[in-house]
Design a binder for these strands. Structure first.
Lengths: 335, 335
DNA sequence: CATCGATTCTGAATCGTTTCATATAGTCGA
DNA sequence: TCGACTATATGAAACGATTCAGAATCGATG
């Protein structure tokens, strides 16, 4: 099962290996006759370039690594598609790593990407990544943080103003006359979650009679939402919130699901629910869910473009791009 | 920005390159003293093994390539997680390619994987892949088809009996007294879609008074479902189906969304809807959607295990694993 | 027809790791 | 102290593509 090499092709075509390499990489520098000969030899032998060898000599691969928090969250698959599109246009491929919010897996993929000498890394980080960023930078690998801004990390970032988003969500709930508001999300160590909560707090503080309860859950999945929902349904009436702001749409979906399925609470009559991300499924939920929309695909696209910028121009400075979110009102918050 | 090589490490530690390599790959063959020396040198110099060189010498990478039809379909992300878990246990990583049902992109990723000399390929194919399979086989790259069985392709596969699934779905609709049934899905060139339709036909044929209408849509997304839904709503009453079997849950979600949002049709009173895949979002839809469940994660896991089996044992024979689907009844089909 | 320049070709050197035949050190029994 | 092993360590060769300095080829021109 010996594989075909450029040498084999060169022999078959009666040219030198240098010429074969030129056919592969700079076909315009090769005379028509030899181009023909070489291409024919390639076809006959079924030659496929060995990327490891190419990379070893060339110094780096054409791949860009992307580490996301959760493949099952449509937010991230949307982001991935934006990144893919931009990478495509530039002739690179995206290598996806799914950390599942586990720092161990995050490390695993970052190590893997380093070993693979990827051209750049996009990271949706879990905890503190300052060290990681410094290390990548020292190694000359451009890195961009996505969906999260870290001051002083020495890395560029593309994010959305989550504090503003949180504020918008809760302001909207307040405008609807809600006063006993619960924030559901977690872990709070996740910056996005903390920021959305901070925004919520800011909004609450503009009033005197509203209160905010924080219910932390371990992850941001439908199951977590459902669990919290069941706990809320089981409460005594006087402890019941009249609105819930979920840190993302999956949690919001879980909440709504549990409220409606147990027939314990009507949405939005008993309790209003607003989510975050505006994933496709939010609009098709039991009760279409209000949400805070992020320009998700654009985030992915921009991040890749920033990587490419850094590759092309070594002197490119650290830059933080911050997009603004947008409120999307649906049935779950308006009676 | 010169990178640190094993030679640098060897010099620093005062040992030979062979020893450094042994520390990296067979630490048990190295004396404690040198192990210590080498590890220290690695840490001091910040050495990271160059995977391209490793791969070049070793012959193949530790990655397994997976090409899926649509990252935005939770079915595939679930499958991915199963594959990831199995790969993890075996110390390999999954490289993901998203074909978006575009044969060009499918080819692109398969070529890329070949160049990368992946250890194996999992493919959820679009059209005819016989040639592709033969070629991979000739190159000694184990391949497994997922979610689709292709007789005589010379490749193993892991799939679900979609004909049975289609039959189950429509039998269920018939039991509920529905008689004017529409099948929505596409493209019909996709085997999964064709099989589910075939199952539906078989079920219909067990009755004398029921009829099946086939509505083909270009893709299997929420948007396609919504478009077909709008078209159905616009029909005259006597052309209206009383049940719809969607080829997957995304389409079903889109249909329900359009029926409910336009207030044109009540689900399940006017029209029952059943989907396929039983993704998480099916149960949290406007009307919780009945579906045909596949052991999705298990499919991914099994496929990777079959790849590993083929790597370890060259003589492993072609094998088709076929799982059985399971009916999940929810509100969308029972008044 | 000699010369100069431009265009194409050639092939040895190179990238960084692993491998493996060979060398060396270490252990034990006699 | 001397073999007879075993356990470790060594370092040159190999993997396969790219690079680049220099060679070969071709035309045009005086």
């Amino acid at each position: 099962m010996k594989s075909v090499s450029v040498t084999d092709v060169a022999v078959r075509a009666g040219v030198s290996v240098g010429t074969v390499s030129n056919v592969l990489n700079r076909p315009d520098k090769v005379s028509a006759r030899r181009l023909e000969l070489v291409n024919q030899a390639i076809a006959e032998l079924g030659f496929v370039r060995n990327d490891a060898a190419r990379q070893l000599r060339a110094g780096s691969s054409r791949a860009i690594g992307l580490v996301i928090l959760d493949v099952r969250n449509p937010f991230f698959t949307e982001l991935l598609r934006g990144a893919e599109a931009a990478a495509d246009e530039h002739g690179s491929a995206i290598l996806l790593g799914n950390s599942d919010q586990d720092p161990g897996r995050e490390s695993f993929y970052l190590d893997l990407f380093e070993e693979q000498r990827v051209r750049g890394v996009l990271l949706s980080p879990i905890g503190d990544v300052r060290d990681r960023m410094t290390r990548l930078r020292a190694r000359g690998i451009p890195a961009v943080l996505v969906d999260r801004r870290v001051d002083d990390a020495g890395a560029s970032s593309v994010s959305v103003d989550d504090v503003a988003g949180g504020r918008m969500a809760v302001e909207h709930l307040l405008e609807q006359g809600r006063r006993r508001i619960a924030f559901v999300g977690g872990p709070l160590s996740l910056q996005q979650v903390a920021d959305r909560l901070e925004g919520a707090r800011q909004a609450i503080q503009t009033t005197t009679d509203a209160m905010l309860e924080v219910i932390e859950c371990p992850q941001l999945t439908i199951l977590d939402g459902r669990a919290v929902g069941n706990a809320i349904v089981a409460r005594r009436a006087r402890d019941m919130p009249d609105a819930v702001f979920a840190a993302n749409d999956l949690v919001a979906l879980g909440l709504v699901q549990s409220f409606v399925m147990t027939r314990g609470l009507a949405v939005p009559d008993d309790v209003a629910v607003i989510g975050y991300d505006d994933i496709d499924f939010a609009s098709s939920a039991v009760v279409p869910i209000s949400s805070v929309r992020q320009p998700t695909e654009l985030i992915g696209r921009t991040a890749v473009e920033m990587i490419i910028e850094q590759i092309d121009d070594e002197t490119a400075v650290v830059r933080d791009v911050v997009y603004q979110p947008e409120l999307v009102v649906r049935q779950s918050t308006i009676g």
